[in-house]
Every structure is written in C-alpha cells, then in structure tokens.
C-alpha cells in the first residue's frame, strides 16, 4: 500500500518546527511515530500536503522528574517512558496504559506519547479503505452528512477516542503544554479533547503538543488503568478506565475516573468524585454506585462504532470501572511511604 504524495520536512529544532507549522497551517500534519497517521494516509482518510517530522527534535523526547511534575516530551517514545525507572513504581497506571498500547515491537519503538494522545478518533465505518467507503454515502467524519454508527443517522460524528494513555493521565490531573510560534499555553489534558468526532482535538492549525506534565505522587494516592480487549496485544480497548484516588488510609479523600473507548473523547465521570468522597476505603457499595454512574454516563455516548456490540461495551464500563477503582485504592493504601521514598 502506497502513501499519497507530500513534502517531507525535518526541522532541526522546535522553533523551526513551529515556524513551518505556522507557514503550512491546515495543509500539514505532524509526523511522530507514524503508527496512526501513516495508516490513515494509506487508507486515503487524510492527505496532508506537508509532513513535519519530529525525528530530529530531541528536546521533545525528554523525560524528567521535577519537584512538582513528571515531564514527558510529546515525542518521547513509548518504550523510553516504560524504561524510565520511576514510572513503573510511582505512576503504575501510566505504566499499565502504555504497556497496553498495541504491541511492543509495533508501537513502542516508534509510537510516542504525544501521538497516542493526539491520535484521531476511530469508527468501524470510517477507518476503512477507499473502496469500502465508496460503497456508502460519505459520513460526517469524511466530510459528508450522515453517521452509520448512530442508529437512525446523526448530524454529528459518533467516532470513538481510543487513546489508552488519555484516561489515566486525565484522571491523574495531567496538564499538557501546547505551543505555536506565537504563544505557549498549558491546559489540563482534558481540554485537549473537543468531544467533536469530526475533529476531536482542540489544537489550532498552527499549534502542537510539546509536553505532558503529570503531577508527582502524594502519600495515600493511587492510580490504575484497566483495559478490556479480546486479545492481549495489537488490540483496541473494548472499554478502558483510568482511576486515581486519594485516601487517608481510612476514607476516600478524592477520586477521579475517566473512561476510554466509549465516547468521542475520554469520558470523565465527574459525579463519582462526590459519590466516593468521604466514603470508607473498601466500601463495596460506594464502588458499585460509582460503577453505575460510569455506566449510565457512558451509555449516552455509546455508538455502533466498533465491531463489539454496544450493549456489551456498556455493561463492561461498570466492570472495568470497579476493577480500576479497586486497584487504585489498593495502591493508595500501600502508598504511605511515597513521600519518604522520594
């Protein structure tokens, strides 16, 4: 399968990259690992005139820990993040989510964290070859005016966000740094996502994601990522969940939960914070309530955008939520000494 034509640019530093981005505007895509973009280009889903390669921008591949954050450059390879010693011990949820992406030898040596966060939404009716799509009307995402994934059609695109790292990073309160030639802004990762299927990111044409900031851990907090897939590798999630909790050993002080693979963006279940707050640690009923809330919230977004049945995926939101919350809580309880260890 051959790629469509484009010009290839390999800027030597970030300023040059931003300059090019500014000049090309809409007609341009950023090439990181290529595992998402190049497939879509081969299928004719996107045909950018220009590609800007991040290959030479070693400044975007740095991973380091500061007093406040784990800072990960957007072009850091997934394999390098996994190999960065502190990640597995202190951010186990992040570690698990990266391990769950694709398969080691496919994505990890090429794929980047920025690429995983900025991947396009997916749909079984959209991510197909040109000839497949030509046999139907053009859908919203492809510039047309219908949606095959939504019963009865829709004027909106109901594709699904399949980033594995987004749910856990949002749950942990990660921020992202976004740069253009003109300005630099840091926003909560949540705000990177537009929840619009046609263009799921809020990035402007001249902007790029440059860094991810994950807050350092505090005593009594815990994170977990759960992913249900039919295979152990090279599979997108049926449902995924990122959970973060903060306890004082007896009670839940804070909890956040983000569900992946169900909605047009990572789905934050805002209500569970109230539901779980001040509930005793290990309160099964509280977890059940949270799981139910997650399932109800997810149900509204569920579309027939994957090959697995919608009803099953909806049911699994509850199961995966419980597992993620329980694991995060368990980790929180065994995490009294985090501050000392540092």
């Amino acid at each position: 399968m051959r790629l469509p034509p484009f010009t290839y640019n390999r800027p030597q530093d970030l300023d040059e990259a931003l300059e090019l981005l500014n000049a090309y505007g809409k007609d341009c895509k950023i090439l990181a690992g290529g595992t998402d973009l190049l497939v879509r280009m081969k299928q004719g889903l996107v045909a950018p005139m220009n590609l800007i390669s991040l290959k030479a921008l070693s400044e975007l591949a740095e991973i380091r820990e500061t007093a406040t954050d784990l800072k990960i450059g957007a072009a850091a390879k997934l394999s390098d993040i996994l190999a960065y010693q502190p990640v597995q011990g202190r951010w186990p949820g992040l570690f698990e989510s990266i391990k769950a992406i694709g398969a080691p030898s496919i994505q990890h040596f090429s794929g980047t964290i920025g690429g995983n966060l900025c991947q396009d939404n997916r749909c079984q009716f959209y991510n197909q070859s040109r000839s497949f799509r030509r046999a139907r009307q053009t859908c919203n995402k492809a510039g047309g005016s219908t949606c095959f994934a939504w019963k009865g059609g829709s004027d909106k695109c109901h594709s699904v966000c399949q980033s594995d790292t987004a749910p856990i990073l949002i749950a942990m309160g990660a921020k992202v740094v976004i740069k253009s030639r003109q300005e630099t802004r840091a926003i909560p990762l949540e705000e990177l996502y537009s929840s619009i299927g046609e263009h799921p990111l809020t990035l402007g044409d001249n902007e790029m994601l440059t860094e991810i900031l994950v807050p350092v851990r505090a005593p009594g907090d815990g994170s977990a990522f759960e992913k249900l897939a039919y295979r152990s590798a090279i599979d997108y999630a049926v449902v995924s969940a990122g959970a973060f909790v903060q306890t004082d050993g007896n009670q839940m002080l804070k909890a956040s939960l983000v569900i992946g693979a169900v909605a047009r963006g990572p789905l934050t279940i805002a209500t569970i914070e109230k539901t779980l707050e001040d509930r005793p640690v290990g309160d099964e009923q509280a977890i059940d309530e949270a799981a139910k809330e997650a399932m109800n919230a997810a149900e509204a977004f569920m579309a027939n955008n994957m090959t697995q049945p919608v009803e099953y995926r909806t049911q699994m939101v509850s199961v995966i939520t419980k597992r993620a919350l329980k694991l995060a809580t368990k980790r929180a309880l065994s995490n009294k000494e985090v501050s000392e260890a540092k």
Partner: peptide, 29 residues
C-alpha cells in the same frame, strides 16, 4: 508486506538496533 498497516509484523527490520515496522516508516525517517 503482510498487511501494510503495521499490524502483522512481517516487514520488521532493525533501525539502530530497534525493531520497527518498515511499512509504517518513511524511508526519509
């Protein structure tokens, strides 16, 4: 080329010692 989409692994080569999918890597990269 077994799939051309980076899934099957038949096109894997080593780039600076690391296995990568040659079907999803630009020659210029």
């Amino acid at each position: 080329e077994g799939c051309g989409e980076g899934v099957c692994g038949s096109c894997t080569v080593l780039m600076d010692g690391k296995p990568i999918r040659s079907c999803l890597t630009l020659a210029l990269e």
